[in-house]
Design a protein around this nucleic acid. Structure first.
Lengths: 212, 212
DNA sequence: CGTACTTTTGAATCGCATCAAATCTGGTGG
DNA sequence: CCACCAGATTTGATGCGATTCAAAAGTACG
């Protein structure tokens, strides 16, 4: 859940004044492929997706967003190259594209902040890609904690079920992996919803203590 | 393999004039954690990695780059939060950080181009993350083709072995998947090094024609 | 021609997905 | 307060697909 006021406070006044908040129904389209972009979006709650429908009919998901800017690509595109769909009831901010571009041109502070936002996003996504190319659940957990946490400790911003999806695992696989890791003394978990995970031992060692 | 001239041509004269090309030996460090950033890098050939060493001693890979900007994070950071290591003999461009920042401030065209570069990177990485969260090799292949290609056809910029790594698979798994898919009439492959893959049928249908 | 690399196939194993079901949890309304 | 519900959490059993180890065949290049 993002907060509209916080977001708008980080944006030049002139731009903030002409952005609107909107509520989307599940299944509703923000835009369709080949449409001319009119807005940049910011997801406050719910879920938005970028979807391309393959020639074979398969739906290709390019991006899922539950919080943050959405469809930044439209900044420099003449037309959309995919559909933008709300897959849950969602709250969205609509930044007029014209105003957004103008703000980037005129306001060097905003331009800098937005570039910083993009750079951070790149960093995070690269780490996530590396993480998803790890083969086992345990490795991904360790990678997540070492990457997103501090000193081997991380507070989860969401449920373990949502965490599992983020790690590219089923929730069952994650629960089992966490159980084994905790039992092996590799990690310790506290709390229920907001969980603290701290890495104690090396994932490569001492992970086969029990296999009964 | 990137070309230094092409890269430098896309950069303001003043910045280009003070960047240097360097050759790195396998294992050589570009920078260490807590160093103060002095340069932004561009990988021309070889491979560079961002690596964080976990408290447990495990090496966490945050990013691998074989071509393109490297360590853009240093643009806005006081110190590095990980190590930058060449994992193969590599050719690298060193952009002085000061000059790079100045160019972004002064040259609105360059600022725009760099923001565009970051935005594209974000798009690509999000698609890659979605792809890596798909469970089967066949789904990832289809996703790749539909995402990176045009009209269901894609020319691979690298060997199938490298493609497998990009898809988060072992090369054996990819070869087998491609074989099955081709035999099932889902795709067709031409050429050896630069391969064209075109999706013919839906991955969900007609994929169990043979299981002998 | 020989070396290094990619491509390909085989067999065995392991871990995750899947389906199923039970328990626990927080929150709602009676 | 308690019954109840929706969701998260946990455990079990089974099968599949990818990994792994191994090795052969093909290919590029000096």
């Amino acid at each position: 859940m993002g907060d509209a006021h916080t977001v708008l406070a980080a944006v030049p006044r002139r731009l903030a004044d002409c952005t609107r908040q909107r509520r989307l129904k599940r299944g509703q389209a923000l835009f369709r492929i080949d449409d001319r972009p009119q807005h940049i979006f910011f997801v406050l709650s719910g879920e938005l997706r970028l979807i391309r429908t393959a020639s074979s009919g398969a739906e290709i998901v390019l991006h899922r967003s539950r919080c943050g800017f959405f469809a930044e690509a439209s900044l420099d595109a003449e037309t959309y190259h995919c559909d933008g769909i709300a897959t849950s009831d969602s709250d969205v901010l609509d930044f007029p594209l014209r105003g957004f571009r103008a703000a980037l041109e005129d306001d060097s502070g905003f331009s800098h902040a937005f570039r910083q936002h993009l750079a951070r996003e790149v960093i995070k996504l690269r780490a996530r890609s590396e993480r998803l190319s790890l083969k086992t659940a345990a490795e991904r957990v360790v990678h997540f904690v070492e990457t997103e946490g501090r000193d081997g400790i991380v507070a989860l911003p969401y449920s373990k079920k949502a965490w599992a999806a983020d790690l590219g695992l089923t929730h069952e696989a994650l629960y089992r992996a966490l159980g084994k890791m905790e039992q092996a003394g590799m990690i310790s978990i506290e709390g229920s919803n907001s969980v603290e995970v701290s890495i104690v031992a090396d994932p490569r060692k001492s992970f086969d203590t029990d296999n009964a």
